[in-house]
């Protein structure tokens, strides 16, 4: 289907001024920029294995299953996470809570088994958003390894142990509270890295009449 000519917006290439068309000043200008970075050297490199990265609190890593204040698994086996999962990596077998047990008096169901295939998972965080009881959450543990595929199938015990391991660490607060996102969704105080170079408003690239203009 041909494009309607009225839909085409013609973007003029800006005419080069005298010094730009001689190339060399632009070359020296570029060399000045790169030379300044060499002279004023502030590396942003992190020495990874020794120095762990300072991850933003909305980072999505390995899952955990939260415990409630009685130490039970919070999950009520409602299957909403398994339904929401686009990668279909969550497998839950629900079980009715034993009615006569006072330990489970306030609950209808609990997961008999809860398995997440961490190799299938795409770490999108939809399970976290779907969960009505703030049970499943993504931690900022990113360096998970295993020698076999079986090791990467995280079952309920392992997911609970991830919670025990991470509940007191700095980067892993309880993120959701009764369906509302906690402070992790507060994007003002996220410690992400800024770009190494900035675009000034008087740069030619910023003035260009195209999408993605930085004002």
């Amino acid at each position: 289907m041909p494009i309607n000519p009225k839909d085409i917006e013609w973007v003029e290439e800006p005419a080069m001024n005298f010094w730009e068309s001689t190339y060399l000043p632009a070359v020296f200008d570029g060399l000045r920029t790169t030379g300044q970075h060499v002279a004023d050297f502030h590396p942003v490199t992190e020495f990874y294995p020794e120095q762990k990265p300072n991850l933003p609190s909305h980072y999505r890593g390995v899952h955990r299953l939260n415990r409630d204040d009685k130490g039970r698994v919070k999950c009520v086996a409602c299957m909403m996470c398994a339904t929401a999962c686009p990668a279909r990596c969550i497998d839950i077998v629900a079980q009715d809570a034993p009615k006569d047990d006072p330990h489970w008096a306030d609950r209808d169901k609990f997961p008999k088994s809860f398995v997440i295939d961490e190799l299938k998972c795409i770490y999108c965080g939809m399970c976290e958003e779907a969960c009505p009881v703030d049970s499943i959450e993504l931690t900022n543990i990113f360096d998970l390894t295993g020698m076999t595929r079986q090791e990467m199938m995280f079952d309920k015990e392992k997911l609970l142990s991830v919670f025990d391991q991470t509940k007191d660490t700095v980067g892993n607060p309880i993120r959701t509270h009764k369906g509302k996102l906690g402070h992790a969704s507060d994007f003002t105080d996220l410690h992400t890295l800024g770009p190494a170079t900035t675009v000034r408003a008087d740069d030619r690239s910023a003035k260009a009449n195209s999408a993605g203009v930085i004002e």
């Binding site: 041909p2 494009i3 000519p5 085409i8 013609w10 973007v11 003029e12 290439e13 005419a15 080069m16 001024n17 005298f18 010094w19 068309s21 001689t22």
Partner: peptide, 23 residues
């Protein structure tokens, strides 16, 4: 440099406009 300034003209329009009009 002076010749470069004179000869640097909007390139995309002159080349492609007839094609678009034909369409």
């Amino acid at each position: 440099g002076l010749i470069g300034t004179q000869s640097s003209r909007p390139f995309a329009r002159k080349t492609l406009e007839p094609v678009a009009e034909a369409h």
